[in-house]
Design a protein around this nucleic acid. Structure first.
Ligand SMILES: [Mn+2]
Ligand SMILES: [Mn+2]
Ligand SMILES: [Zn+2]
Ligand SMILES: [Zn+2]
Lengths: 139, 139
DNA sequence: TCCTTAATGAAACATTGTTGCATTTAACTT
DNA sequence: AAGTTAAATGCAACAATGTTTCATTAAGGA
C-alpha cells in the first residue's frame, strides 16, 4: 500500500514529515528508534515532531513498539489489520546482540500463556536475543 | 539465605549500601527500579552508587533485569542458581497496568521458540501485560 | 594496625522524552 | 480560488535516566 493510502486509511493528515517517516519504515526491514529516523532524515525536522509523529502512528495502528535487550524503544510497521482500536502484532521479535537490529518475526506467533489463574492478561510481549542470520554468515 | 551469605557467595564486599539494597529486595515481592530503591533508602545514598550497586548485582547474578510495558528498567532477585557465569531466570513476568508492579512468575517457564532456523537464540524474554490479582480484587 | 584495592560521593555531562506556547500548514467551507 | 479552522510543527525549557571522571573513604587481607 502507498504512503498516502496508509495515512488516509488511518485518518491522518498528509504532511511532509509524516510521509517521509512512513517511507523510511516501508523501506527498512528492521525496527527503528526515533534517533534512527532523525538521522535518516538528516536534520530539518525537529526531534519533538518525530516523537509526536511516532506516537501518533503508534496510537493509530501504523507502528508498534519494540523493545530490545537494553530497554531501547524502537518502532516497526504494523500488520495490515492494526488500527486505533486495537493492535494485532502478537508475533515474536528477534534482537541481534551483534548488529543491534531488532526484527519482527511475523510468522512465529507468541504462544498462549498457561497457568496464570487470577490474572487478566491483555497482551504478551516476547523477544528472543542472540545472533541473527546475517551476523552468523558474516562470521 | 541471609544478606551476608548472599554477598559472600557471589564474591562481593560487604558494604552498608549493598546490605541495605539487598535487604529491600528480599522484602519486596515485585521488581524495583533504581529510583524505587533510592526512595526506599530515603536519601543518604548517592544515585550513582545505586546504579553501580544494581549493575554489579546484575553482573554477579544476584538480580536480573526486568522491563515493563514502557521500557522502564527494574530489577528482581535472581533464583538461587544464577551466578556471574550465567543467569537462569527464564520465567514469565507479569506487568500490571493498573498498579504498575512487575512480578516474576517463577513457576511459568518461557516456552521454547520454534521455527527460527538460521538464528542463534541465546535467551528469550517474555512479559505478560494486564491486570494483576490484587487489582482485580480491589475493583 | 597497615596497606592495597574496591566502593563511594560529588559534579559534570549525555541521552531520551515531555510540556507550553507561538507559528505554520492541511483540509474543509464558501 | 480565497478564507477559515483545527491540527501539526518548531522552539525553548524542563524532567528523568544513566554515564564518566576523579577525589575520598572504607573493606578485607597481610
Ligand atoms: Mn513486530
Ligand atoms: Mn524474573
Ligand atoms: Zn545481527
Ligand atoms: Zn496491579
Amino acid at each position: 500500500m502507498s504512503v498516502d493510502d496508509l495515512l488516509r486509511n488511518h485518518g491522518l493528515k498528509k504532511t511532509t514529515t509524516r510521509k517521509q517517516v512512513l517511507d523510511i519504515y516501508l523501506n527498512t526491514d528492521h525496527a527503528l528508534a526515533v534517533a534512527d529516523v532523525e538521522e535518516a532524515l538528516g536534520d530539518g525536522v525537529d526531534r519533538v515532531t518525530l516523537y509526536r509523529t511516532m506516537g501518533t502512528f503508534e496510537e493509530k495502528g501504523l507502528l508498534h513498539k519494540v523493545y530490545d535487550d537494553d530497554g531501547k524503544l524502537k518502532f516497526s510497521l504494523c500488520s495490515s489489520d492494526c488500527s486505533s482500536h486495537q493492535h494485532h502484532d502478537n508475533h515474536l521479535h528477534f534482537h541481534c546482540r551483534k548488529c543491534g537490529k531488532t526484527t519482527c518475526i511475523e510468522n512465529v506467533a507468541v504462544p498462549e500463556v498457561e497457568g496464570l489463574e487470577g490474572f487478566d492478561i491483555q497482551d504478551v510481549y516476547m523477544v528472543a536475543n542472540g545472533t541473527c542470520k546475517d551476523c552468523i554468515q558474516a562470521a
